[in-house]
Structure formats: C-alpha cells, structure tokens
C-alpha cells in the first residue's frame, strides 16, 4: 500500500508538470525555421516582450546571403555564455520580420566552439531555466 502511495505521488508529480506546463503557444513559428551562419556584429540587451527582461540580441551577418539578422536569445543567456563580436555562430531558429523590416530569428539552437546550446526544443518551447546560474555543474552528473 505504501509503495502504491509513493507511486501515486510520483505520477501526480509528473502529471501536474505536464498539465501545468501547458500554455497557449505564440510567436515561435516552426514552419519558418531557418539556419544562418556568420560572424557576430553586435551584442545588446534590448526589450522585446512585455513583462520580461530585455532579451540578449545578437546581430549576425549571414556569410552566404550577407543579410543581417537579429538573433533573440533569452535574458539568462546573457550570463550563461560569453559571446564576442567577430565570433562565428551557426544559428537555427524561427524567422520573423518586424515592422521596421528587420529580420529577426528566435533562436532554437546555437553552435559555436564545438558546443551546441539548445535554447528551445524542436517545437519551439524554451529550454531556459530560472536559477540557471546556480545549477551549473549539477545537471549533468558528478563533476570533480
């Protein structure tokens, strides 16, 4: 009986996470995903959405098309990673054109220096976390 109770507890935990995590999706359009690659031109923190911290915006010039893109990364990545002007990134994300005809990409995946940052899953849901800076090193098993 007690084990059954514990199992219920675990299932409730899982279920509540599934249910409570659901929200109406918006903005990220999976059908408009593109891949760009090029050097960083500029790095800024800019306000993007109501009631959220300003996003980390990386201006990136695509080497193939020479087009300039504004890459949107969630605010926490400002502290999570160090990006520099001139560094080459490969970015996969959803393209949208803002009112001023700027090309913007909501980043889902960023590759650089042999690492891949997964910012969102393939459906566009964000992977970033609160308290992230405190969690470094605990997530992926034992660190010595």
């Amino acid at each position: 009986m007690r084990r059954r109770g514990q199992l219920y507890l675990v299932f409730i935990l899982i279920f509540s996470g599934l249910v409570l995590g659901q929200k109406t999706p918006h903005f990220y359009n999976v059908d408009k995903e593109i891949r760009v690659e090029g050097p960083i031109q500029e790095i800024n923190m800019e306000p993007r959405y109501v009631d959220t911290s300003p996003f980390l915006i990386i201006k990136l010039k695509d080497t193939k098309t020479q087009q300039m893109y504004n890459i949107e990364l969630s605010p926490v990545w400002f502290f999570e990673q160090n990006f520099y002007k001139g560094e080459v990134l490969v970015v996969v994300g959803s393209l949208y054109v803002s009112g001023d005809n700027n090309l913007n990409i909501i980043a889902r995946e960023v590759r650089f220096r042999g690492e891949t940052l997964i910012l969102r899953d393939k459906h566009g849901f964000p992977n970033w976390r609160g308290g992230k800076m405190k969690r470094q090193g605990r997530k992926k098993g034992k660190e010595f």
Binding site: F27, Y28, Y49, R120, F125, P126, K140
Partner: peptide, 17 residues
C-alpha cells in the same frame, strides 16, 4: 573509475514567446 549515464526529459514548457 566513475561512470555515469543519464537522461533528462523536458516536458511541455511554457509559451513560445
């Protein structure tokens, strides 16, 4: 010797904004 294997599931996350 220390060996570790792990899996992490990301369940439905919040809005796509």
């Amino acid at each position: 010797h220390f060996f570790s294997v792990g899996i992490e599931w990301n369940f439905l996350s919040g809005g796509r904004k």
